[in-house]
Amino acid sequence: MSKPLKFPRFIAICGNPKSGKSLAQEILSTDLNYLPIDDGHVLREFAVNKLGLSWDDVQTQEGKKRVTSILGKDWEHRILLGEFGNRLEEMFGEHIMPFIATRNLYPNARYSFGSVRKTQGHFFKEHGGVVIEIMNPMAPPSGNAFDKYDLSAVDRTIINDGMLKFDDPQRARAYFRGELLSAIDALAKERS
């Protein structure tokens, strides 16, 4: 009889904007019951509750491209969120966002985090997690320092190139799903 697979409690996902990180969290939730956690929720919540942005402005790719004027200065929403995160990290260190996101989680559940940046992957590894990088040839680097991540923390890289291989978005999604689940399976076998 084979040993049951030991899936990590935390899966931290990094990658360029639009690489497929949210899709990876959706697949992990549907297929493996990982609860998706928005590790940047505190930033989005502040922007909505204190600066008047909408949830669409801070959660969707289209919304993050929009611009809002605050006290006479125009801010692209993606830049606003990133700079706010930078200020918190200046105060508390680069691991403040995963620290906030992992507080008060149920101990017997599994979680995915879809916005892992800078050295934050190491925080998740120190807490028994794994780091998955999603690379998409159609999603180049943003050029923003806050979108970069430490490659030395990455346990597996998944190439999300299904849209280049298939004309059908459903087939591309199924291909990506297979690649992601195979990587998680391999990581779980290594840990078992």
Rank of each mutant, 00 (worst) to 15 (best):
I159D: 08
L35P: 00
K21E: 07
F124A: 07
V154A: 04
D155H: 13
N108E: 13
T30S: 13
S29H: 11
V130A: 10
I37P: 11
T119A: 10
S19N: 07
Y111D: 05
S2V: 06
D150H: 01
G82Y: 05
K18E: 12
L181C: 02
A139V: 09
K189C: 05
L105T: 06
N108V: 00
I37K: 14
G85N: 02
S142Y: 05
L81W: 06
D39C: 01
S22V: 05
V48L: 00
T119L: 08
G63K: 06
A145E: 14
G143Y: 07
L32H: 06
R9M: 05
I27Q: 02
G82P: 08
E90S: 11
E83W: 02
G93H: 03
K6A: 13
E94A: 11
K125S: 14
I27S: 00
H127Y: 11
K3Q: 12
P141E: 10
N160M: 10
K65S: 15
G178H: 03
I100W: 15
I27N: 01
P169K: 01
T30K: 14
F146C: 00
P98E: 04
E179D: 12
F99Y: 13
I37H: 12
G82A: 08
A24W: 10
A188R: 06
K64S: 09
S69G: 00
D161H: 15
F84L: 15
I100T: 15
H95C: 03
E83N: 11
D161K: 12
H95D: 15
S112V: 05
I100N: 08
E89D: 01
G82R: 08
D57K: 04
V48S: 01
H122D: 11
G63H: 08
V67W: 06
R156V: 13
N108I: 04
L187C: 01
V48N: 02
L28R: 07
E94W: 04
F123D: 09
V67R: 11
S19Y: 09
R191K: 14
E83Q: 13
W55Q: 10
N108F: 10
L80W: 04
F99A: 12
D168F: 03
K64H: 08
K118S: 07
K18S: 15
Y111V: 03
F123Q: 09
E89I: 02
H95A: 11
N108W: 08
S152Y: 02
G20K: 09
T60K: 09
S115Q: 04
G63A: 10
K148S: 14
L71S: 12
D74T: 06
D185G: 11
R78M: 05
G52H: 09
F176P: 08
G20L: 08
F146D: 11
A12V: 09
I79F: 10
G178S: 14
K18I: 07
R87A: 14
D74W: 00
R103L: 15
F146R: 03
L80Y: 01
L5A: 09
